[in-house]
Amino acid sequence: MDGRQKLQPIHDPRRKNLGLFGAIVFIVSESMFFMGVFLVWFYLRETSPAWPPLGIARPNIALPVVNTVIMAISTIAMIIAERGVARDNQRALINGTAIAAATGLLFMTVMILEFASLGFNPTTNAFGSSFVMVLVFHVLRVFAGVVIMAVVLVRALLGQLNSSRRALVQACAVYWYFIASIWLIVFYFLYIKL
């Protein structure tokens, strides 16, 4: 023996999608995190005499509407990227990811404007705390998503991703869809159904 032995390789279809499976399991935990956040939101809402409390202006819906549109564009771009990599279409992958990342950054920028335009802040009262915190927790996920997209983009540009090596793109995409769905829930409860 020369210090190298041959290990029998493993052929198991279950192993192919480890990354995607892992991402989905992780998303389950992320959903539970938001469940905790919303548990607090609803608990405070149900135990408060007025929600939002008296003297707090209802937040303007304009910027969140803009952000919903941005999120929709971003999601479509991500779908294009994911389909692109499945068909070995490098241009679709690169352009799709780039647009998704750019719109993600735009979403974060609009969110910062939104924070500035709110008539309250997290220290005002329990309403302010939970309202802003829900947004902060979400926008932090958007940031994480953009970071992952940057990694995807770099690896795509280096030509490391293709139809047989696309777990990272799939994981990134499914996480991004998750963030988009959470945004819809946030938008619904914090703005429409307030």
């Binding site: 389950v28 539970m32 995190f33 607090v40 329990a126 705390s129 939970s130 915190m133």
Partner: peptide
């Protein structure tokens, strides 16, 4: 997987209450 993130959310809120004057648990 299902339980821990809920506590994590709560712990973060309690920590921000203590350090950044958020109001989750002060009047609730």
């Amino acid at each position: 997987l299902l339980a821990t993130p809920v506590l994590t959310a709560g712990l973060i809120m309690l920590t921000t209450d203590r350090n950044f004057s958020t109001q989750f648990f002060t009047t609730a």
